[in-house]
Every structure is written in C-alpha cells, then in structure tokens.
Design a protein around this nucleic acid. Structure first.
Length: 477
RNA sequence: CGGGAUGUAGCGUAGCUUGGUAGCGCGUCUGUUUUGGGAACAGAAGGUCGCAGGUUCAAAUCCUGUCAUCCCGACCA
C-alpha cells in the first residue's frame, strides 16, 4: 500500500535534493528554460502562486496597502545612492548597457529589488504629515544573477511581492514591520500548513540597508532551514539619502521612517519540501490548484459518468476547485498520478458506490480511505478539506517542535546539526566571531533570534562569555 | 567562482574502448477489449546523437573549444 509506485521519482532517503527536482518536474510545476536560473512556471505551478497571491493581496489590502507598479530597470546612478544597499546587491546585478543600437550613458540595472525606485518616488510625492503613511505593495519579478540555482528555491529571476511603506514615527514603522511579519506567519498557518520560526535576524544576516530584519523560517525534512520571507525596519537611512521629508504637526521638517517586506515563489519550494513524500507532491488544500479529483470507475457502466459529472457540478457549485478525469487510463494509474501531483482529496465513483448510494475516496496526505453518503457530499467534503489542512499543519508543527533542541555544549550542537537534524537553540554572546566559528565548523548559521528570549544558560556556548541572546542555529538553503 | 558528474526521440537509456545503415524500454498516436492501486493485443509516428570547429573516404564514437543541467563547497530571498 505505501510502497513506492512511481519509479521515476527518486526517494527522499536516496537523495533528497534529487527527489525535490524530480517532484518539481514530474508534477509539472515548472520546466527549465534555455537560460540558467530562469525557469518556466507551468500552469500547475503558477496556479499555486496565484492562490498564495490572492490570499496575501487580500491581507495587504485589509492592512491598507495599495498596489503599484514600478519600472523594471533602475539607472545605475540612482541605485548607487545608498552605500550598504549597493554593496549588498552589486555582486548579483544584471545590467543592460545597450539600448537600440546605442551604448547607454547610465547603464540600467534590472531590478534585484525596488527600494531605490520607491524612495525616489516617495521623495517626490510626500511633503506633509497628511501624506503619511504611504502603504505600497508591488507584485513583480526581480533578477539576481545567482551562481547556484534551484527551481523555486533560488532562481536568477523569481516572482515576488515587495511592500514598501513610509511612516511619521519610528514606533508606527516598527509596528508595521512586525504586523506584516504576523501576516506572513498567519499565512503559513492559514494556507500553507507550515509553522514558521519567527524572529529577528542578526546584524550579519539582516537585509542590505536595513536597521532591523525580521524573518519567517521554515524547517525542511532534511533538517535545513529555508528563509521564506522577511520584513524590515529601515529607520531613516534611505530617507536621508533620498531626501524623503515631510512637515510635521509642529511645522518642522522630518525624515520618514520606512519599512519593506517580501515573500517570493520560494514559498512554493517550501511547500513542496515541507509536505511532500516519496509518492510526490502533497499540497495543502487551500493553495492546491485542484482540491478534489473525481475518478469514475468502470465509466462504461450505466450511470457512472453521469454521477461523476453530477458530483463535479455539486462541488463546483460550492466553490471548490475540482477535476473530473474521464480519460481511459486505468483507475490505478490515476490514483498514482494524482497522488504524485499532490491533490489533497480523491473521490471515486463506480457501480458499487452507485448501488450503495455512497461515494468512496482517499486522503492524499496520509492515504486514509473513506466512504461517505451521497447526500452528505458537500458538507463532508468541506469538512474533510479543513481537516486535512489542520492535520497537515499539526504534523509539520510536531516535526518542528521535535527538531528544535536546546544545546549547551559544542558536542550537543554537533549532534543536533549532524545526527538529529533541525534547529539548535543556544545561548550566544552577541559577538559575530563566535557564530563565524560555528559556520566554519558546521556550515551552519544563525537563522533568527527568536522573539522569546528566555535564557536557559548564563554563558555563550562557543566562547563562554556572558550570554546576551538566545539564537537559533541551522544549516540553510 | 572552485571541485565532481552528465548531455543520444517527451522521459530513461544501449552503442563510444576498437570510427562504417542509431537500437531498446516507458510514454505518445489509431483501433479493439478493459477499468475498485500504475491493463492487454495489434498497428503507427517520433532523432540536426547539447552546440561549434577539427581529424578522416567516413564521426554519436577520436581531438579542441563551448554551452547547459545536476551534485558538493564559497556567496545570496
């Protein structure tokens, strides 16, 4: 029953990285293009992104954001204004140097992120405290010339959303950055069925140009962490460089306080790894492009196809995303195929069910089979999809908790990173040199300073100096 | 950017050592029978052997270069 039916997919235990790539391609989420790092988002993969977009776009608008669209290209002279920012991104920019047949005086950088465009624009449109806050969001793609690329996890081009906001006060801006982190965290719980580790990034890991960076980190089954989204408090750094000023209520000129935040199609990679298994993809119901697949058994028998179509229509009528597979593949083939594609719920209708007035089916995530009364179809299906979501979230949460370990010695750290796998929670002096040592020894980095900073030891695990922070260490994607 | 591996039909591969008509499995198409966990039979289509040079009467095969993908590092959402 649980043995591997699809020989084409490498098993996770054989080679987790290869398993991941196999799933991406076999489930038809993406395809490679002719340019390294630039992937084709196929309909099934893109539909997952659309579902994430739909959810987030709604949440952003609830928070008062407006969508805008900035240019694809940034003049080099503009990009270079903020020092830390350019230092962070310069090594991975793609630059257009020719327009038509003429060499460009000021070469155009294909945006790796749009901070400077927003800043430049904000400076022009803001003059009074009455203009604030400005809460903008942009859906677009960005380009970063990456050396190593993997589908969804790291591409030279990826789709994302970038929010950019400016505020009158530091408190308001900081609160907003944390609010948006909460939106991301809730998204994990609501639709991705992924519990995120949340916290603050260390000085070294924070965004180029930010004063403070917050993060959501997902723990993958191979024990590695995947940074899945970040929000930033920029302070007034960009505002001063780009001269984004306003007159406050006391008639004095002030610089705005700024934030930005983003999540990308990397979330798809996160979902693939967090929930997938040796049978392939396993999608949480709320982002699954197809939530229910209906498989007619012996479709030539009287009434079977009609019933299958009726079920399809009834489920569509209550707003579900449904597919009825009328093709002449055998049922066994279809079962395996739709498991591989991660469709959360399968319904089967055949002569046996017709006679009994029942509908058979199975869950993708745990392979459990069931049978339900025809009359209860709508009600039961909705309940089951919610149950599947909750169970998937719980399973991921249990994994996260089981794989978050407090460590007090180098030996324990070694054990967590190399044997037990997952997050190592340790006390840290606050000196980056101590973390550098860990990186050198274990190729692991600080993922976050968790918001819960309750100390559990007095000294830093590495240096023995007085401990300042609780920090989460892991290998990362 | 360093180290390793691989490019032959949509996918997986044989052939390469020793140059001589490009083969197999899966998938695809047509038809018939099937159908409750990856069906059977019959017929058919599908190839610039990654690309570019070179050696040769002759190159998938030998030589040089190049590109891409994957893996492992360093760098990064």
């Amino acid at each position: 029953m649980n043995k591997i039916k699809n020989e084409a997919i490498t098993t996770q235990s054989q080679d987790f990285a290869q398993w991941y790539t196999d799933v991406c391609r076999k489930a038809e989420l993406m395809d490679y293009s002719d340019v390294k790092g630039f992937i084709i988002y196929r309909p099934y993969g893109y539909a997952i992104w659309e579902n994430i977009q739909k959810y987030l776009d709604g949440k952003f608008k609830e928070k008062g954001h407006e969508n805008v669209y900035m240019p694809l290209v940034i003049p080099t002279s503009l990009f270079q204004k903020e020092k830390d920012h350019i230092e962070g991104f310069a090594p991975e920019t793609l630059i257009a140097t020719i327009g038509g047949s003429q060499k460009l005086e000021d070469p155009l950088i294909i945006r790796p992120t749009s901070e400077v465009l927003f800043c430049d624009h904000f400076a022009k449109i803001v003059s009074s405290h009455r203009d604030l806050p400005k809460l903008y969001n942009q859906w677009c793609s960005v380009v970063r010339w990456e050396k190593t690329t993997r589908p969804f996890l790291r591409g030279s081009e990826f789709l994302w959303q970038e929010g950019h906001t400016i505020h009158e006060s530091e408190v308001e801006a900081r609160t907003h950055a944390l609010d948006m982190l909460k939106v991301y965290e809730t998204m994990g719980k609501d639709i991705l069925a992924i519990p995120f580790l949340t916290g603050t990034k260390t000085e070294k890991e924070k965004f180029a140009g930010a004063e403070q960076t917050f993060t959501i980190e997902a723990l993958m089954p191979d024990g590695k962490a995947l940074q899945s989204g970040t929000t930033h408090y920029f302070g007034q750094g960009f505002a001063k460089v780009f001269n984004i000023q306003f007159q406050d209520k006391n008639n004095t000129l002030q610089y705005v306080h700024q934030t930005s935040f983003g999540v990308s199609t990397r979330l798809i990679g996160s979902v693939i790894m967090a929930h997938g298994d040796d049978n392939g993809l396993n999608l949480p119901p709320r982002i699954a492009p197809i939530q229910v697949v209906i498989i007619p058994i012996q479709p030539n028998q009287p009434g079977v196809l009609q019933k299958a179509a009726e079920i399809e229509n009834r489920l569509k009528a209550i707003g579900l995303r449904v597919k009825l597979d009328k093709s002449d593949k055998t049922p066994g083939w279809k079962f395996a195929e739709y498991e591989m594609k991660g469709i959360p719920l399968r319904l089967e209708i055949g002569p046996r069910d017709l006679k009994a007035g029942m509908i058979s089916g199975a869950f993708r995530f745990n392979h459990a089979k069931f049978s339900l009364e025809d009359s209860a179809l709508e009600k039961e299906t909705l309940l089951m999809l919610d149950d599947i979501h909750d169970a998937m979230y719980q399973r991921a949460l249990t994994y996260l908790l089981d794989h978050t370990t407090e460590v007090k010695t180098m030996e324990e750290l070694d054990h967590v990173l190399n044997v037990k796998l997952g997050y190592a929670k340790m006390m840290w002096s606050g000196d980056q040199k101590d973390l550098d040592l860990i990186k050198e020894k274990f190729q692991a980095t600080a993922r976050a300073l968790p918001f819960n900073q309750t100390p559990f030891a007095a000294t830093c695990l590495v240096s023995g100096k007085p401990a300042k922070y609780v920090v989460i260490i892991a290998r990362a994607y």
